[in-house]
């Protein structure tokens, strides 16, 4: 059972981010970390391989400047090797080009029984890349996986829906996107951190993968405008006249919390 996890390396959300004035894209010139939403995929892959009893977990990523810090975190968690696609010509790539690149990276690693991605990245939120990877590779795709089981050559997924979850099955190989919180990601151990630097992490260009970068000019999507998030409104103050509990219950019901 070999699993490839597509991971994104993003600017640390704990640090204030900045947008490029002309492209409106997030600046990525500093240190990048493993997107927390991808840590769930790495953990799920490690658990599935452990359950299968054999196999490896590989990670693929696309990032500028040869940045590998986030991928090293995945290796420290237990992934066996990584493949980074880093190419200045890929700057400004849209979701489809990203999917083509990642699909080609998966192919370069020799394919996989299962490909896992996060439902959406924490900094871009297009939420379309996993399905596009599946299309590029001609594989079935199951989205919003909250529970995953492999039974022989059959993939069994509990797929999150608005009202609960659907039980979905498909054949392997396949591509799945997992929801946040699907598993509890492990912390990299000291041993894992020390071993990570010895694990293979190859860096290739778009040309190495025979993918034609589109760049900003030819991207199929554009960020046309960026506006400030709406300021948080003042909260509601409820004076307790002896009936405040009813108002609190109504407030929570309105939010569909109870």
């Amino acid at each position: 059972m070999n699993i490839v996890v597509c991971v994104k390396q993003i600017p640390d959300p704990a640090s204030p981010g900045a947008l490029d004035a002309s492209t409106h894209a997030l600046k990525r010139d500093g240190k990048l970390i493993l997107d927390e939403s991808d840590a769930y995929g790495v953990e799920m892959a490690l658990q599935l391989v452990a359950s299968a009893g054999s196999g490896e977990v590989y990670v693929v990523s696309m990032a500028p400047n040869g940045e590998t810090s986030g991928m090293r975190t995945a290796l420290a968690m237990g992934a066996a090797r990584g493949l980074l696609v880093s190419d200045p010509a890929l700057a400004g790539s849209d979701a489809l080009t990203t999917a083509k690149v990642l699909a080609a990276a998966v192919t370069k690693l020799g394919g996989a029984d299962l490909i896992i991605a996060g439902t959406e990245s924490s900094d871009g939120y297009t939420g379309t890349v996993p399905e596009q990877i599946a299309e590029c590779l001609g594989l079935p795709s199951v989205t919003f996986a909250k529970k995953v089981k492999i039974d022989g050559q059959v993939l069994k997924v509990d797929r999150q829906s608005e009202t609960g979850y659907d039980e979905v099955e498909c054949s392997l190989p396949a591509v799945i996107s997992v929801t946040a919180g699907v598993v509890e990601p492990r912390y990299p151990s000291f041993k894992g951190i020390m071993d990570a630097k010895k694990k293979p992490l190859d860096v290739v260009t778009a040309g190495d993968l025979a993918v034609t970068p589109t760049g900003w000019a030819a991207a199929g999507q554009k960020i046309v405008n960026v506006t400030q998030a709406e300021a948080r409104k003042a909260g509601t103050v409820i004076e307790d006249d002896g009936e405040a509990f009813g108002k609190i219950v109504a407030f929570l019901e309105n939010l569909k919390l109870i």
Binding site: K31, I33, S69, R72, T73, A76, Y187, P188, F190, I193, M194, A196, K197
Partner: peptide
């Protein structure tokens, strides 16, 4: 260095 940054991030998170 990168390794020790990961140690820091890991223990900060834990």
């Amino acid at each position: 260095d990168d390794d020790h940054e990961m140690v820091q991030a890991t223990f900060r998170s834990f």
